[in-house]
């Protein structure tokens, strides 16, 4: 199979209702490599085009556990091994744990939050200043009040003619071939 010379076919819709219907139809039709471009997240569209797990919670859990345990053991090391000091009668050993809880908590949250943001950006492949879909005329309204559905050429079912016919059946405003 030769790789088609385009990125995919992009259909433009007027309303959130239309894109929801279109995404469902495309999903039922068996397309996988597709993406919708909407000014705001629409749950049903997301379910149709991006059914897999996001992967974010996993990294957050790792970040949180690493942060909390790192914070706790840093304090334990500093206050009981490296430089044990009896301050205000708080024992310089494990029984002084209550005073280590606040920092443990904070460092856990800090790393978990960083994990959330970094995994969001990295898993989404951002920053990405150039992307083929930006070539579509009128695409700047995808962030404002227009709704786009793009079936990508990498999809096994993708066929320039038949996919275009399918998209046409969804009654979009227009269909564009996306240059790679």
């Amino acid at each position: 199979m030769t790789r088609p010379a385009i990125y995919g076919l992009m259909a433009e819709f007027d309303s959130a209702e239309a894109i929801t219907k279109a995404a469902h139809r495309a999903h039922e039709e068996g397309y996988h490599d597709m993406d919708a471009y909407t000014p705001f997240p629409i749950e049903e569209v997301i379910e149709a085009v991006s059914p897999r797990n996001t992967g974010v919670p996993f990294f957050v859990l790792i970040g949180g556990v690493l942060g909390a345990s790192g914070g706790f053991f840093m304090q334990m090391y500093a206050m009981t091994i490296d430089y044990p000091l009896n301050i205000g009668g708080r024992p310089p050993n494990i029984t002084g744990w209550p005073s280590f809880i606040p920092i443990t908590f904070e460092s856990g949250i800090l790393l978990a939050a960083f994990a959330a943001v970094i995994s969001l950006i990295a898993l989404n492949g951002l920053p990405m200043p150039y992307h083929p879909v930006f070539n579509v005329p009128g695409f700047e309204r995808a962030s404002q009040d227009r709704f786009f559905l793009c079936i990508e050429a990498t999809d096994t079912k993708f066929d320039r003619r038949r996919t275009r016919e399918f998209l046409q059946s969804l009654q979009p405003r227009q269909i564009t071939e996306v240059e790679p």
Partner: peptide
């Protein structure tokens, strides 16, 4: 904007991450 293109796959992670940040905050 880091090249944000309002893609649903992005929104999916975005909503998840935003919710988690809220839960952490």
């Amino acid at each position: 904007s880091l090249g944000w293109r309002s893609s649903s796959r992005h929104w999916h992670r975005y909503e998840m991450a935003y919710l988690i940040l809220a839960a952490l905050s």
